[in-house]
Every structure is written in C-alpha cells, then in structure tokens.
C-alpha cells in the first residue's frame, strides 16, 4: 500500500515536470499580450518567429483577471509585452510585472509596449474625480477598434520586434507590409458599407466604442451605464426609454464580455433591435485574424444599423 502510494506520487511529480517543461517551446521571441487583439497583432507580425500568449480571452473583462501560475511563468519568459495601457490593466499588470522580475518587459524597456501611449487618445480628461465613474484620466484605452490606429501600432510593434530580434527583421517588415495591404484591400472592398454607416445613431452598453464611432462616424446617442462602470439604474433607463421613443436609434449594442440584460430590456421597451458585437478578436491564432474581425464587425453593424 505504502509503495503504491509512493509510486503514484513520484509518477505525479514526473508528469508535473514533463508538462511544465513541455510548455516552454524553444522559439525565438516570446510575446505576452494582455488582450487578444494584441496577441493577434503579434502573431500577424511575428509569424513563425514568435510564440504568443494572451493573458485574457475575448470573453473576459480585461479590467480583472484570476491569477494562474502559468501566467506568471509566461511573464518571466516574455521578451515582449503588449497591452492597451492607459490604466486598463491597472488592477493586475503592475503586480504581474513585479512578480515576473523580468527586466525585458519592465516599463522603459524595448519589450514593453503600452499601445495607448503611441496613438492619439480620445476622451482625455483635464480633471478626473471619482464622481465621474470608472474613467481613465489618460484617455479611453480601447484603441484597437480603429484600424487607422491599429496600423500605426503595427508599425511600432514591427520596429520593436526587429530591434529585439534583428536576424529576422526582414521577415517582420514583410509581414507588416502584407498586413497593411490586406487591411487596405479589405477597407477598399467594404468602402460602400463603411460609408453607409456614417451618422447612424446607436446606443451602447459601456463607453468603450468611441474609437469605432470616430472611425465610422457613428453617432453614439447614449450609454446604458449612467456613468462608466456603474450598472444601469432604473432612473437612467427610464430616461433612455422616453428619449429613444421620441428620437429612435437603429440599435442598442453590447460587447461580447458585457451583460446583455439591460440592452434586451431597453430593446423590448423601445422596439429597437439589440446587437451583440465582437468587442475584440476571438480566434487570434488564425491567420489574418484582425482584418477578418474588422470585416465581420462592419458587416454586423451594417446589418443592424443600415435599413
């Protein structure tokens, strides 16, 4: 009995060691992304020269995560870290960086990219007070929803990859070129659809679509949350019902990781269609994930907003 017990323990430990060592593949560059959109971008630009991991999935709220051992070991191994920044990950990224003890991804290092630091931000605030809700003083961090900003970030990531891994810099530049031409081709193909969305009125759950509004010229009439991060209140919803009945909108949208109850409730009360939108790239490991995601985003928006 004792021997069997001992045997199973050593087998278990052996299995543990095997599983753990198996996960560290020998590839040139390890990239840790905070959100799937940046994982998709890293994969797109790095191709076979990078191993990419994402700390969150498309169905998780990037504001909060549950700590797992492998997340810390991924941070320890990472050569590059790509996150949104602008305080989006403030609840967990600082402690993850500290726990990693990895100089290559600390702020100021080449391998540390906070994308929001490198593009023009919307929704910047002169003064932030707590009464405004969950707002970010630095500006709205959800920059990936604008392809124009996405290609600027792609240039930056390409440049940093080339700095970290000069041997493959040619390949990174080529990948970036083909990414950008795919994007241009898609936008050209969808030009009529994109145009048709201009000035369409919609209501969203949380104020994380402002870059999409900026790009497509959508008119966001209201948010279901009275203030960012505050769950919809009865008073606010009642006000929305009367204003939408007077001045209808095309659709009420919520992101894939957000609750749908309030949107459905308001949709029924005001006879407005309700739209679940892919807030970010779901299958980020697939080739051309970003461009196809933009395309499906525009398509489902057009289906809902254009008569």
């Amino acid at each position: 009995m004792n021997n069997i017990f001992k045997g199973s323990i050593s087998k278990f430990l052996l299995a543990t060691i095997l599983v753990a060592s198996n996960s560290s593949t020998f590839a040139a560059i390890n990239v840790l992304a905070c959100e799937p959109e940046w994982a998709a971008l890293a994969k797109q630009l790095g191709g076979n020269h990078v191993v990419v991991n994402s700390a969150t999935t498309a169905l998780q709220d990037p504001h909060h995560i549950q700590a797992r051992p492998r997340l810390i070991s991924k941070a320890r191994r990472a050569d590059m870290l790509i996150c949104s920044g602008a305080e989006l990950e403030i609840g967990w990224l600082p402690i993850l960086l500290k726990k990693s003890g990895n100089a290559k991804i600390q702020s100021q290092a080449i391998g540390h990219i906070m994308t929001a630091d490198h593009v023009e931000l919307l929704g910047k605030l002169e003064k932030v007070s707590r009464s405004m809700g969950d707002v970010h003083a630095a500006g709205n961090p959800h920059v990936h929803l604008d392809p124009r900003r996405m290609v600027l970030i792609a240039d930056l990531v390409t440049q940093r990859l080339a700095q970290i891994d000069p041997d493959n810099s040619e390949s990174y530049r080529n990948n970036n070129q083909s990414f950008k031409s795919d994007m241009t081709a898609m936008l050209e193909r969808m030009k009529a659809t994109v145009e048709s969305l201009r000035n369409k009125r919609w209501v969203v759950h949380h104020n994380n679509w402002i870059y999409l509004n900026d790009w497509l010229g959508l008119q966001q009439i209201a948010t279901l949350e009275p203030k960012p991060g505050v769950p919809p209140t009865t008073k606010h919803l009642a006000k929305l019902v009367s204003s939408l009945n007077e001045n209808p909108v095309r659709a009420i949208a919520y992101g894939s990781y957000q609750p749908k109850k309030a949107a459905n409730w308001l949709g029924k009360k005001t006879n407005t269609s309700v739209l679940a939108l892919q807030y970010t790239v779901i299958d980020w490991e697939k080739p051309n994930a970003i461009v196809s995601w933009y395309e499906s985003l525009i398509t489902s928006l057009a289906n809902a907003l254009v008569p």
């Binding site: 700590a67 797992r68 051992p69 810390i72 402690i95 726990k99 405004m132 809700g133 969950d134």
Partner: peptide, 22 residues
Amino acid sequence: ANNPHGGEQLQNLLVGQILWVE
C-alpha cells in the same frame, strides 16, 4: 452608489489572490 471607481478598486484592495503574495 455614485462612486464605482473608488468602490470597486477599494474592495479589490482587500481581497487578495494567493499567487500575488509577496
């Protein structure tokens, strides 16, 4: 009620996750 930023973060301060222990 009118202060989600403060509230949520404050409560997070008091609920640790074992892996983040220093």
